[in-house]
């Protein structure tokens, strides 16, 4: 466990295998909530928070419940239920403790339940860090760091896309390409740029 490994996990999740542009996870909010940068940032913050929490909670579920009882095949069911409950719970806690934060994040939280990036990060964590036989402490820290930086990568892609789309409103987009089609073309160009990171070796 050294700084290099952490750096590799963070840069890997944010740039090299960015959840949206390289792994194709969380495309629905990427297309749906990328109309203006402010709400994109709000959504991004909510996703970072939920992804980190989900990584943390699913680590406990997997290591202390699924593995000891030999029921790892129930992974999908257990994770999706835990994530759905977690999102509800987080929403209630935020509503009670900080109404201001709830006003800015509130509307995005229900959307996150069906965001495949959140379940995706939990599954990737299991395959990369938990089921590979790392010592418990290391796998715990790597999992949480990976969850956080995956959310960071999602936010980066979302905010970039929202800023581009705002500029695009002034450009002459062909009528049939307005809306979702042009968003995909822009995403393709962004993915090309991100492809440049794939040669990065740390």
């Amino acid at each position: 466990m050294d700084v290099g490994t952490f750096l590799a996990i963070i840069i890997g999740a944010v740039f090299v295998s960015n959840f949206v542009l390289m792994r194709f996870l969380g495309l629905c909010p990427f297309v749906g909530v990328s109309k203006d940068p402010d709400s994109a940032l709000g959504m991004g913050m909510a996703v970072i928070f939920v992804m980190t929490m989900a990584s943390l909670v699913t680590w406990f579920i997997y290591v202390f419940i699924l593995e000891p009882f030999g029921i790892t095949y129930l992974r999908t069911i257990a994770f999706i239920l835990v994530i759905a409950t977690l999102v509800q719970f987080v929403e209630m806690v935020i509503e009670k403790t900080s109404p201001a934060l709830h006003r800015s994040l509130g509307i995005y939280l229900p959307l996150i339940t069906t965001n495949c990036a959140v379940l995706g990060v939990a599954v990737v964590n299991v395959e990369d860090f938990i089921a590979t036989g790392l010592p418990l402490g290391a796998s715990f820290i790597y999992t949480v760091v990976h969850g956080f930086s995956a959310g960071l990568g999602f936010t980066l892609a979302l905010v970039l896309m929202a800023s581009i789309r705002q500029r695009l409103q002034l450009g002459g987009v062909p009528k049939t390409m307005i809306g979702i089609p042009i968003t995909f073309i822009v995403a393709g160009l962004m993915a090309m740029a991100f492809q440049g990171f794939s040669g990065l070796k740390i």
Binding site: L21, M22, I180, P181, F184, I185, G188, A191, F194, Q195
Partner: peptide
Amino acid sequence: LAPGAFITMGLLMG
């Protein structure tokens, strides 16, 4: 690779 997927999708929708 990833960019091809996005561009194909955008053009098909168009």
